[in-house]
């Protein structure tokens, strides 16, 4: 049962409260309070980060900085106003429902570190860094997230913001498989980015959600494909590789066998949608 509620207004105050109380930080609370009510989290202290004086969304050196407390709705508005390419927007618009996006935050999604987190997938694709305070450490997201719900955070630290690359001239595909239209927690998802040069790969990034303890991305495979001709055989090879690399679990949403098959099928589907014809 929650007995204490704090509203720190400075970084140091927040950090001290976190050490002293071991309380849970929240911004929108769309996840935390559901978990508390379900008994999945038991805490007597919550710390509200919304009153912290922090920076605004900003673009610097082709990078987008998203501070804590920025909601998905605010992020979408900013992307539209600044005409940032639609990669992030295409993922963000599928998260939760409009009501949840009015409260929920990208930083919260990273902090939860779910392998099904759609914004987590976006952050892997866009080589995100997580910025911590008060240490001012900057850690690549794939090093920051250690496993389902596990993040690399010292007792006094908290996530202050995330920084994502802004990319131009990339082909993009994103799909998540779920059981309904709104509030989908994905059974499996894929995000693909390709930069081409004369029908050959100049850069490729491919990531899968919900099919391993963390988002699945493999930079060695990506590197080995640079200069390769883009065709169906290449994607069959990729589909096979990631079928083997994936290590999903069986849960209430789907079995591990089904999820592995989805990895294969979604990879080919991404190719067909981008290079042959659009299929739903």
């Amino acid at each position: 049962m929650i007995k204490n509620y704090f509203r720190p207004s400075t970084i140091d105050e927040l950090s001290e409260l976190k050490i002293k109380t071991n309380g849970y930080l929240f911004s929108g609370g769309t996840d935390l309070f559901v978990k508390i009510r379900a008994g999945a989290i038991n805490t007597d202290t919550v710390i509200d980060t919304k009153y912290l004086e922090n920076e605004e969304l900003k673009i610097e050196n082709k990078k987008l900085f998203i501070p804590l407390n920025t909601t998905y709705t605010e992020l979408r508005k900013f992307i539209k106003a600044n005409q940032i390419n639609p990669i992030i927007e295409n993922i963000v618009k599928t998260i939760g429902s409009p009501m949840i996006r009015n409260r929920g935050t990208p930083v919260g999604n990273i902090a939860n570190a779910s392998p099904a987190g759609d914004f987590v997938l976006a952050s892997y694709l866009l080589n995100a860094s997580v910025i911590l305070k008060p240490s001012s450490k900057k850690i690549p997201v794939e090093e920051f997230i250690k496993g389902p719900g596990k993040i690399e955070l010292e007792k006094e630290e908290f996530i202050y913001g995330i920084e994502l690359e802004i990319l131009d001239d990339y082909k993009f595909y994103f799909e998540k498989v779920g059981r309904r239209n709104a509030m989908i927690i994905s059974i499996a998802s894929i995000g693909l980015l390709i930069k081409e040069d004369n029908e050959k790969i100049k850069d490729i990034r491919i990531a899968f959600g919900s099919v391993a303890p963390t988002i699945l991305r493999n930079k060695e495979i990506e590197k080995s494909l640079i200069g390769e001709k883009i065709d169906k055989n290449l994607f069959k090879y990729l589909a096979n590789e990631f079928f083997n690399l994936s290590s999903p679990i069986t849960d209430v949403r789907a079995s591990k066998e089904y999820r592995k098959q989805l990895v294969y099928n979604l990879t080919l589907k991404a190719y067909i949608n981008l290079y042959e014809k659009v299929v739903i």
Binding site: Y5, F26, G29, T30, V34, R37, K50, T73, I100, N102
Partner: peptide
């Protein structure tokens, strides 16, 4: 649903729709 999924408890918070089951009252 009490988990922010069904929209039945929707209210406007500063003019925007939110699920009131997922809003901390102190906030």
């Amino acid at each position: 649903c009490d988990t922010g999924m069904c929209g039945i408890c929707t209210v406007l918070f500063d003019g925007k729709p939110v699920p009131s089951c997922s809003v901390f009252a102190a906030r």
